[in-house]
Design a binder for these strands. Sequence first.
DNA 1: GACCCACCTGAATCTAAAT
DNA 2: AATTTAGATTCAGGTGGGT
Lengths: 377, 377
Amino acid sequence: MGLMEKVKARKAPPVVAPIELPLDQIIQRDCIAAMRALPADSIDMIFADPPYNLQLGGDLSRPDGSHVDAVTDEWDKFDSLSAYDTFTRAWLAEARRILKPNGSIWVIGSYHNIFKVGSAIQDLGYWILNDIVWRKANPMPNFKGTRFTNAHETLIWASMGEKARYTFNYRSMKTLNDELQMRSDWEFPVCGGQERLKKDGVKVHPTQKPEALIYRILLACTKPGDVVLDPFFGTGTTGAVAKRLGRHWIGIEREDDYVAAARERIDAALPLDESALTTMQSPKAAPKVAFGVLVENGYLTPGVVLSDAKRKHRVLVRADGSVQTACGTHTGSIHKVGSLVQNAPACNGWTFWHIETETGLKPIDTLRQTYLLATQP
Amino acid sequence: MGLMEKVKARKAPPVVAPIELPLDQIIQRDCIAAMRALPADSIDMIFADPPYNLQLGGDLSRPDGSHVDAVTDEWDKFDSLSAYDTFTRAWLAEARRILKPNGSIWVIGSYHNIFKVGSAIQDLGYWILNDIVWRKANPMPNFKGTRFTNAHETLIWASMGEKARYTFNYRSMKTLNDELQMRSDWEFPVCGGQERLKKDGVKVHPTQKPEALIYRILLACTKPGDVVLDPFFGTGTTGAVAKRLGRHWIGIEREDDYVAAARERIDAALPLDESALTTMQSPKAAPKVAFGVLVENGYLTPGVVLSDAKRKHRVLVRADGSVQTACGTHTGSIHKVGSLVQNAPACNGWTFWHIETETGLKPIDTLRQTYLLATQP
DNA sequence: GACCCACCTGAATCTAAAT
DNA sequence: AATTTAGATTCAGGTGGGT
C-alpha cells in the first residue's frame, strides 16, 4: 500500500483470531451479545448505523394530507435519554474490545443521537479523526415549516486512540475527488429507486443507507481482505458493498425480515474483479530508491550542480550521494540540505532540487522515475 | 414577519427584567460569573462560540515550509476532557436560567467539542431543533494528507424544552433562499479579507466568525428589539450584526484586547438601512443566485426602493431579501410581489424590478450579473 | 484601468520507520 | 522511549506589486 496508508501493525496479529471469525456471515442475535462472542483485536473496521432514538411524536402528514411513513419500529424506542446513553456506551465498549489496535470505527447518526454517540466515543478512549456530513441531495422537506429542512446526517470516524495508527487511503480519496483532497462534506441522494429494497411494494427497512456512502467509507479506510463488522446490519448494505470491494464482512442483526432480505441481496451482489479494485496508491508503493543509487548507476555524475526551481540555491553532488552547498556551509542528504538552505523544518529533496537539462530545469524526481522504469519489471 | 413565527408568549415577560439588563454593552468578566449576575428569564436568544478545546500538538507547517498560525491561546486549554465537560455544563446551565421560556440557544463547535456540547444540551433539558452545518467555501487543507479536509463546523439550535415555543422566521428563510426551504447545510467563506479584524497586520482574534453566518441566525430566530446574549463575545461579531439588524445585544468577554476591538467595531457598525454587508457568500453551492444573497452580501441595502421599468410600482427591500409594497399590502419574494402588483399569474422578479442608478433605471438582474462576475471564476 | 502573478493565510486534534 | 532520518504533503481566495 501507499505511503500514507497507516496500515502496518508492528506486531503480527494473533494467528488464531481469523480462524474463529464467522467471515461473510450474518449473526442473528442481539448486537452486544454477538459482539461479546467475537475474539478481541480481530476486526479491522466497524461501520455502525445504530438506532437514532428519534422520539417521534404523533403521525406526520404532508401538506396534501398524505401520511409520512416514519420510523416507528420498536427497535428505535428507548425509555429515556439515559437508557439510550447506557445502550450506546455498552455497544461502543464491546466494539472497542474486538477492534484491532490499528482498526477504526464509523458511526452514523442524526442530531437526535449523534452527540450522545460522539461523547461516548471520546469518553471510551477512541480518538475522533473526522466528523463527516452526508448532505442529502433530496432530503424530505420540513412539511410544517417549523424548522430548517433536516438535510444531512453526521458520521464520526475514530481510531482506537490518540497515538493509534489507522488506514486512510489518501490517494484513492483524492483521485475520487478529481485530484482535490476529499472534504468532510459529502453529497449523496437518499436511498431510493432500484436500490431501495421493497417487499410487496413496501420498503423493507425504514432507514436503508445508500451504497455509495458505504462504498466511499470502505474505499477510504480499509484494504482488500480486511474484516468489516456491522453490528446493526439491517438489510446488509455494508455486506453488499464489502463483497463488491473484496472486503470480508460480518453482520449482526436480530430481525428475521432484515436477515432474509440481506442474505438474498448479498448473494446477488457481484464482486468487482481485481483490476477494478486496484486503487490509487501513494508514490511510495514503488520501491524506495536512495538518491545515492542514482549516482552509483550513472544517472547523475558526482560534481554535477543541482539547484532549486528558482535557481536561488545550488549544491554539488558528491560521490556518496550526499550534496554540499557551493560555499560548503551545509552538507548531507538532499532532504537535509534542502531544509537547511530554506531554513525550513523539512524538505522533500526529490521535488526541491532540480537538474539543468536542454529543455530547462527538471526535478531530480524525474531521474528516479526513469531509473524505476528501467529497472522494474 | 412571516407565517410560522411562534413568537407570542402566553404570559407577559417579567416587567423588571428589561430594566436591569445591561443592553448593548460588553460585560468584561468571566462568562459564568457574568451570567449569574443577569436576571432569570430575560434573554431572547443566546449565540455562543465557546472554546473548542482543540488539543493541538506541536507546530504544523505547509508543504512549502511556511508555518501555520494555530490557536495557541490559553483560553482554549483545558486540563482534561472531563474538565471541559464540567465547564460546558456549567455555562449551559447558567444560560438556561437567564433565557426566557420561549428563547433559544445557538452554539457553534467542531468535532473536538460539539459532541460534548450537544450531549450536555440534551441532558440539561434543552430540546434540539436542528443541527446546522457551516460548510466552509475555503477551508484550510489537510497539509499532511492524513485525514479528510476538515471543511465544516457544526451549530446546534435548541429551544428550552420539548414543548417550548421558539421564534423561527420561516418566511424570511425561505425568501432568503430563493423560495426554497432553508436547509440545514449553509455555505459561507471563512472570515478573512476586509472583514477580518487586524491590529498591526496581525489578526486580533484567532477564530473570528463571518458576519454572514450570524446574520442568518439572527434573521431566522429573533425579532427586531429582541435581546441577544453572546457569552463568548470575542471581537463582537454578534454585537455588530445585532446592531445592524435592530436587535439588542449583550456581550461577555474577559480579554482586554478583544473588548477594545469589539467596542470600536460595534461603534462603527451602522444600523440596517445605512450599512452594506461586505461579507461574501460563496456562489459555488448554487450557481443560481438567490435574491437574498445579494442583500446578505451588500449588493443591495435593506431599505432601498425598487420599481418596475415604468415606475408604476414600487417596493422596499427588506433584510431577509423579501420586498414589500409601499402601501404594505403585498409582501414576499421579488417574484411573488411582482406577480401580485401586476395581478399576473407569474413574474420574473429579476427582470421586472429595477433599481435607480445615476444612469437611470436598471433591472436588478444586472446586480446578479455583477455578483456572479465578482464571485465566479 | 485591466490583467497577471507571486505571495500570504485560515478553529488543525496533520508522518513513518529505523535506530 | 526518545531521537534521527527519509521523504511526503495544500485549496480557495484575498492582497499587492508589476506590466
